[in-house]
């Protein structure tokens, strides 16, 4: 590991000022589960690491004035699972309880999950997010069984790593971004937070140098139904092969509005409009959930080694809907 400067922030303002000293040459440390391994492999080489793990104002899970919930970026998965406020949003619990490691539950944070860099093996071996080696696209020519089946016509073929983003986006969550100047803040729909890089120098989110995410906000659950399903290869510590989260507004037993978001199938969380359209005016049954799954994968464009993910994505959509409707799948 190359050396770097370390500074522990004691407030959000303090963190922003520590980040501002070296614009673009900093990294933000919380639970460390992703960043420290990136540092060890020298995949990120910041001049300064700003440790925000002691910033107490970013830890709370609290109600908002309108009856929704505000989740601090430093809330751990264990705190999320234990929170009665988060219990109003069952799809979040579906995800949190699928991360089966007490170490990640107790130290991993929700903000760290959203900023987790892709697990693409070409990226993790030092070939960059686009997986290029001397002009050859490794993620296209090489083994790409774990790569994207949607949004993969550009150079980026990796899949977004966030476990929570699909559920949060299905709940129309917004994210608060602080900085880069002191006192500067912006609320952004989480759906717009993730980007697909077109060049080597671009990241996977809209975070600019000197900014950090501080909170997430969800509007009141208000009777909406939700469910999430991750297809995992192993029952222990593993990354999903495909995942989906659904949030449904129901009227008289039929869906009046659906938001269906897939994970680990595209360089960003993938909002499926075709699946939502199919469900409007329909009850949730085995048959309609199946149709929604089929609609979701109608726009898939698998690579040479990951045709199998199409079926997994379809099943994830179907099961997320059945879970939302209360089935134990």
């Amino acid at each position: 590991m190359r050396n770097f400067e370390y500074a522990a922030a004691d407030s959000e303002a303090d963190a922003l000022s520590l980040l501002a000293d070296h614009p673009g040459e900093t990294a933000i440390l919380a639970g460390g589960t992703d960043l420290v391994s990136l540092l060890q492999k020298e995949l990120v080489n910041p001049r300064r690491v700003v440790d925000i793990s002691r910033v107490s104002e970013l830890k709370a899970i609290e109600p908002t004035d309108d009856g929704g919930v505000r989740i601090g970026a430093l809330a751990t998965l264990e705190e999320l699972l234990a929170s009665p406020l988060a219990a109003e949003y069952p799809s979040l619990r579906d995800v949190a309880s699928a991360i089966r490691a007490i170490q990640i539950q107790q130290y991993g944070t929700i903000g760290g999950d959203l900023c987790h860099l892709p697990n693409c093996w070409y990226f993790r071996k030092g070939y960059g997010l686009l997986g290029d080696s001397n002009g050859r696209a490794l993620s296209e020519e090489g083994d790409n069984r774990y790569h994207a089946i949607f949004g993969n016509r550009g150079r980026a073929k990796f899949v977004s790593a966030s476990r929570f983003a699909p559920s949060l986006i299905a709940w129309d969550a917004s994210v608060r971004i602080a900085g880069p100047a002191a006192g500067e803040e912006a609320w952004l729909p989480l759906e717009q937070f993730f980007v697909t890089p077109k060049g080597d120098q671009q990241g996977v989110t809209r975070l600019a140098p000197g900014q950090l995410i501080t909170h997430l906000e969800l509007t009141p659950a208000a009777g909406r139904l939700s469910g999430a399903y991750e297809v995992l290869e192993m029952s222990g510590l593993d990354w999903p092969l495909a995942a989906a989260a659904s949030t449904l507004e129901m009227e008289g037993g039929v869906v009046s509005r659906a938001k269906i978001v897939l994970g680990h199938v595209a360089p960003t969380p993938w909002v499926s409009h075709p699946a939502a359209d199919v469900l409007r005016g329909q009850p949730i049954t085995e048959a309609t959930a199946e149709l929604a799954g089929e609609a979701a994968v109608s726009e898939a464009s698998p690579l040479k080694d990951n045709e199998y993910k199409v079926r997994l994505a379809k099943t994830a959509v179907k099961r997320s809907l059945l879970r939302a409707a209360g089935a134990n799948v």
Binding site: Y6, A8, L29, G32, V36, Y107
Partner: peptide, 12 residues
């Protein structure tokens, strides 16, 4: 709380 010592900085 349980954590992986290999991914925690000593300063933390």
């Amino acid at each position: 709380k349980a954590t992986y010592a290999g991914v925690m900085l000593a300063l933390q």
